[in-house]
């Protein structure tokens, strides 16, 4: 009888896709991975929506706009275990460097005063998700079950955590040389 596969969803919110790159950085172990997991909603297989309930959700990036919040809530709803992957998801990361600066100043710098700005106007289309007052780490929006630090997390750390989750083991005492914040 074939083993039931762990169903995994992944997404990148206010992140740079570096964490997803790091996941791909497990190299040929990805062949072992597809033996034990099945990807559902994820940029890896380009599923845009959930087609079933997932065992594990990996979230890269924090929340900087309303769309990020919507996606994160959807992940919480559909994933049994939700993991914040990388410093942006855990702390807000580099995007959070805007926190504490007024929205007016930010928009003016980005769309008026920046040295490379040509067509000076603040985008205001209803298609564009509303920007939040600041960048929020994921655990300030929904309950997060585990955190995987790093910028990006080392591929070996991701591999270790995936394996422990698959085997139902605790995530305490992760390998020191892989547990980094940069």
């Amino acid at each position: 009888m074939s083993k039931t596969k762990l169903i995994v969803a992944t997404t990148s919110l206010a992140g740079c896709f570096g964490c997803h790159m790091s996941l791909l950085d497990i190299d040929e172990r990805i062949l072992e991975l597809v033996e034990v997991v099945e990807f559902n909603r994820s940029p890896i297989d380009d599923f845009k929506e959930f087609t079933k309930e997932c065992d594990l959700g990996l979230v890269e990036g924090g929340c900087c706009n309303a769309e990020n919040v919507r996606v994160l809530r959807e992940f919480r709803e559909h994933c049994k275990i939700l993991v914040a992957v990388g410093q942006c998801a855990i702390t807000g990361g580099l995007p959070a460097m805007r926190n504490g600066i007024s929205m007016k100043e930010l928009l003016e710098e980005a769309y008026f005063n920046g040295v490379t700005v040509g067509n000076k106007m603040i985008p205001n289309d209803e298609e564009i998700p509303a920007i939040l007052d600041r960048v929020y780490p994921c655990h300030e929006i929904v309950k997060i079950d585990a955190f995987l630090p790093g910028c990006a997390p080392r591929a070996d750390l991701i591999w270790e955590v995936l394996n422990r989750i698959i085997e139902g083991k605790s995530l305490d005492n992760l390998t020191y040389k892989n547990f980094k914040y940069d």
Partner: peptide
């Protein structure tokens, strides 16, 4: 790292 801090239990002050 020694104490394996992942996410601080307190909110960031920014």
């Amino acid at each position: 790292y020694r104490y394996q801090m992942t996410a601080p239990r307190y909110p960031f002050s920014f």
